[in-house]
Design a binder for these strands. Sequence first.
DNA 1: AAATCATATGGTACCGGTTACATATCCCTA
DNA 2: TAGGGATATGTAACCGGTACCATATGATTT
Lengths: 328, 328
Amino acid sequence: MATIREVAALAGVSVATVSRLINRNGYVNKETEFKINKAIEELNYQPSSIARGLAGKRMDVVALVLPDINNPFFPELARAVEDICLSRGYTLILCNSDNDREKELNYIKSLSRNSVSGFIFATDSLSQEDLQELRQSGTPIVVLDRSGNADNCSIIRADSRKGAMMAVQHLLDKGRRKIAHIYGPQSIVTARERLEGYEQIAQQYDWYSPSLLIPGNFRLESGIEAVELLLERHPDVDGIFAGNDMMAIGALKGLIRRGIRVPEQIALCGFDGIGMTRMTEPELTTIAQPIAEMGKMAAEILIGKIESNGGENRFYELDVHLIERSST
Amino acid sequence: MATIREVAALAGVSVATVSRLINRNGYVNKETEFKINKAIEELNYQPSSIARGLAGKRMDVVALVLPDINNPFFPELARAVEDICLSRGYTLILCNSDNDREKELNYIKSLSRNSVSGFIFATDSLSQEDLQELRQSGTPIVVLDRSGNADNCSIIRADSRKGAMMAVQHLLDKGRRKIAHIYGPQSIVTARERLEGYEQIAQQYDWYSPSLLIPGNFRLESGIEAVELLLERHPDVDGIFAGNDMMAIGALKGLIRRGIRVPEQIALCGFDGIGMTRMTEPELTTIAQPIAEMGKMAAEILIGKIESNGGENRFYELDVHLIERSST
DNA sequence: AAATCATATGGTACCGGTTACATATCCCTA
DNA sequence: TAGGGATATGTAACCGGTACCATATGATTT
């Protein structure tokens, strides 16, 4: 690979002039520009982003850290982030962390310090201190679905509690009289909020019992298992609110396998609004987060921070909405 | 962020000694080591991978370029690659390219030249020349599912043609007498091979007709649409071989929606062996590629190349196998 | 006519590491 | 006892860019 000095030599100018042309700052004569471009062409010169990074320039790469690449919610989110990044001239790289703090710290270590110019975390496992450290190095951060206030970085989230309440209310409106909840890992703030939202409504009714709460891990398999457990405990349950769509899809499979008709015998509602919910039979009712909007927003805010060298940290809460389909 | 020179100053040694300690090459006295470690601790020093990259060291990052992050096949593959990379001390970053050559070139541009020390392409849209250029820069490459011979880079693939033949034969064994094929984009070599495999068997029978070939794009929706078209053309079809699992899942939904019983009226077989095929009702019969094995192999071969500075380019073909489930 | 300014280009220190080479002990062996 | 090898550390060039400062010229202003 050619270097800027080789280009300069071939074009008969100094490296400074070549650099000025490439970055389009400073003056460069038309003829000189032509000569340099010819040399660049000839040598097939590509500026090294490494060297550029070392020299203090921002790199046009941003990283999106995802907790579970197998949950389609995150690829959908990633697509939205990607679209914005691309249109703004940034390259997006994806990092899968399994919600594992060690892995995330590892990504930060490998990528920070000018390797990437900004991070979007769609995960919840890093402590405030972990992020604080990164912030101090000047790297802008946007976080999705994190709890707490925004003193460190900008936060974007959907209103999970409200969404959960909408889900339960919807099932009640459909005449359900015993509604269970499959909840996600309580280390994840959105899972906690959805559980809280469920309880806020459910506890007002006399059919409520803590045994209607079934643990899951946000993955499809756990939806199947949860249904097994639930039907054992409460054969008369007639409504299920799953903490996310993947578990809802799993639950649906579990129900069909048992020969239970959805929604006639048991109505089912998920949460997230991933595309996959339209692909089951029956199609799933779900509480939709504005996934694309969240991703776009995250990317735009991050890029804004990158290009303005900081900017204020805000907390953005987006609305969710009910998508009623044939599973209720 | 502290620099190596600050650490050296605080520890009262030269930068060379610090560098030697960090990289564990060359001699460092025990006492000196202790002093340096104390300084590193105190300043919270992290070596800049950027500077390290510029100075000619390999970076411990490899990139995996995926054509469609929404197809669970690729996240599954990514997980396998990730496991190996992690255990070998490498960080994996994911790049979603939509099978778009421009996007892929963009990733190469942003990440090559020491930014990452190796690439795995699970895509098919780059020309030999595109890769050749990257190779010349010394970056090792491993390619999944590419056609042609391995003069440029190592290639790993599953035997799609054979798999397709197995699928059709299986449907025949199940007594099917009119088997359709939903094929994927013919720009993708695996899609072509699966179509060829289908034809190789199907053309031997008198029920064969080119109108049994329905185009799809490897995405779930196209499976649904394909079924619509197929049933219009051939209401008497009794077997479907879908070019990948996502289209098979779509086809299944299309069939169920039409009230067609699977497998009684129409038997259905997919290709890939993604986990999601166990999540439908009925569960899907599929031709399984050794996804995890392919990912692991790709990672191991790549890392081997990185650490041995090159190595031979080989062509690895892996076997597929039939997983018979209730959709046939 | 002198001062100011826009245009155009070159020289080079610097970013933060790595590493080849020089230097200096100390110990062991022929 | 001179010389060779293992141990230990420092100096400085280098990787490939960026950007500050200096320099030079022609045009415009006062």
